[in-house]
Write a protein that binds this DNA or RNA. Sequence first.
DNA 1: CGCGTCGTGGTTTTT
DNA 2: CCACGACGCG
Length: 727
Amino acid sequence: MDVTHILESLNDEQREAVTLGDEHALILAGAGSGKTRVLVHRIAWIIQTMNISPYSILAVTFTNKAAAEMRGRIENLLNVPAGGMWVGTFHGLAHRILRTHYAEAGLPKAFQIIDSDDQLRLLKRIIRDAQIDEAKWPAKQAQWYINNKKDEGLRAQNLDAQGDFMEQQWIDIYKSYQKICDNSGLLDFAEILLRAHELWLKNPSVLADFQRRFRHILVDEFQDTNTIQYAWLRLLAGQTSKVFIVGDDDQSIYGWRGAKVENIQRVQNEFEKMFLVRLEQNYRSTGNILRAANKLIEKNFGRLGKKLWTAGEDGELVKLYTAYNEQDEARFVVETIKQWIEQGNDRKDCAVLYRSNAQSRVLEEALLMENMPYRIYGGMRFFDRAEIKDALAYLRMVASQLDDAAFERVINTPPRGIGEKTLQAIRAQALKDGVSLWDAMALILEAQAVPARASKALNGFLEIINSLLELSGGAGLENLLLAVLEQSGLVEHYKKEKGEKGRARVENLQELVSAVKQFELDSLEAGVDEEFEEMDDLSVFLAYTALESSNGQAEIGDDCVQLMTLHSAKGLEFPMVFMVGMEEGLFPSERSVEEVDRLAEERRLCYVGMTRAEKQLVLTAAEHRRLYGREFYPKVSRFVRELPQDVIVDVRPRAQISTPISRNTFIDEDALDDFQLCLGQIVRHMKFGDGVLLNFEGKGHHVRVQINFYDAGPKWLVLAYANLQPV
DNA sequence: CGCGTCGTGGTTTTT
DNA sequence: CCACGACGCG
């Protein structure tokens, strides 16, 4: 077979990785080194030279976007649809397995997936019902606790508080939560993985079937795998399958949500004769950008070690702008983008990256002021919107009346006169008889256990769901949804909501109808996967909305400036990149500087940000920032100081005018040092007496200090003339 | 039930 | 500072 088309256009290292024999392999792929390309070409190589059917290949990624891209590129390269091949996210694949083996996994056939929002609501209710003090035991924290334990593969019964009262409380909440989920046939995201793992542990024959099938397992972004994902992979690979693992320890930025970089080390110990290939040639950035990024990441300890290089030009220097405040910073960014566009470039080739979402606001204002179109990444997903979730919850009620979470959401949305009292009665009944809320409601109505008024309202709700149930047989998804919107009164309800918001909600609901229509068309065309053919359209659609719905606005159709957090920039690239807010306390985040590991992760985040840039990288910092309604005078980020000075140029046009003395932001770290003063210190002034040094601004001889004098109150003084004495 | 007021807390995000 | 959630009143 002619395989030249697979190998041409690859460099030596890429080719080495792609053409490895029937071996385990670990590919350390630096930023911009063509890792997706290697993955895709490797799959083509396996299929075309190793006599392996696509049916025997499993490719795992983290996001649906990455999975879709990979599938598309494989089909492109092979020039055939890669039908039988499994390409998907950990969650998508595990879900697929659970659908086929729901009985062995101890799940009801119509099990439903809940997202983190549903999970939080459920936990809130559980904590409230158990009469636990919500202030002391916030649902948010319970959610965090439970998901963490599940990510570690731990069930409540595996946990031992060892007499720790706090821990015991969390365990108890975990227990009650899991009980409700199990009774209602609900799976949260972490549960999907945990269940799939347990399914294999408890049913060796099921595991053996999958092990026999998948001869080659390929994993992308391996540094982001958590404990349960690793265990799942390890189990699946068994003794016979070959793994091809691609990752970059320097781009591990999700440790805070359970990702274990150590898995890269672990995989080398646990799989025999693992080939290691480093991809270090970078095709994305200029030499100067790479030199800066390399120098930064070298500061981290315990790296596997990698140094990016390019055959390309040095390019422009990395720019640094020290702004007076965040408005000035935003102004500078917009101004620079304007100039760049005047030189004939596109807005969409500019990205502004920030550490936290709160920083986007000032930038947006500046962009709006200049009428510059922009797009913010990572907003709320379409299927996460409240009105959409309302409509979906009705559909969930139709799919399964066991679904207590959907029941809770929908019973009084829109308001139909069913209050907390009535709901309490239903919950009590459900608890007493061990039945679902839906069944409990029927019992209550039968026993006439609530006032006539409430009874009437409940009956109204009952009828809505019943009539939807009747329709669900053969009317088709679209008609079912239309009936939901009509009979539930949701559209009516949101129409009444005044202002732009209400209108947008109604439009979204209409958009949902289009989404259903499109979904029906797509599944008709693609044909239903074997795992799902047992399932009705409705359940397939609901699983899709929870698991596969994309970010909605992430399509880069228009020519817009791109705004996003550093985290969501991972995997993307732009000719022109701004990293704003390069300040101590902001980036690295104040909450990360205490611990070495967390600081190292921040540094990797900075590395990820820098390596997004192709041609021009601009760093900005503000000397003065208002945050949370308070004033801050941050130092320039240590990350800026860690960069090689010779690839950075300090651009600050106005600086020469206002402060003629040394404008070097690196040396001028602490303006108070020259005067041997520090914040909080008590000082004496000739005229005002003693006071506390509260604040300062400016640099060098222009430093002004704020002192709160015991007698005279707070005053701003020019330090050079104030003649202060430390007390 | 809906609206207003007060109080609090406030990285990073995918599935 | 500002957004969101809890609570109380009409």
